[in-house]
Amino acid sequence: MDMYAVMFYFFAVVTIASAFAVVSTKNIIYSAFNLMLTFFGVAGIYVLLGADFIAIVQLIVYVGGILILLIFGVMLTNKITDSEIKTGWTQVLPAMLVVAAFAGTLLGMVLKSNWRVLPQLQQPVTGLADIGVLLVNEYALIFELLGALLLIALIGAASIARK
């Protein structure tokens, strides 16, 4: 196994194990911190795919923003941390159906996709400049719409906070 494969399996194991811990642990704080590990694992996989920018944005937005706010919220509401989350078996059949359908779709996608193999991955990493050019040319409309969406969310949050 070369370094690339070792790193990939490391990040994959970190991601999956911590994601499993997020849903299985009974302590909500542990879930939150495991979620951080999941985000890190995913960021690592992005780096291995040559998407440095997405990896770093993933860290800034998810770990630096969303996760910190999540932990913040959990810690401020002190009753959540004391109460145990109930995990158990309910709705087994519908859950299994949905999961099977979802897993089947994913598996179909995995098998049908035209995957890039290793030598192609060693091409130069897409730079920040290229992403910028793409964002303001090809995807300008989507980019602007997303900006407007975020602005709406911001104004909404401010107006709710004022009440």
Partner: peptide, 25 residues
């Protein structure tokens, strides 16, 4: 020697926040 060095530093500093929250809790 990564091209996104400056943003990288801003991103990893969030790890310190998580650590402080962890320690406090």
């Amino acid at each position: 020697n990564i091209d996104l060095g400056l943003i990288f530093i801003a991103a990893v500093s969030s790890l310190v926040v998580a650590a402080l929250l962890m320690a406090g809790w």
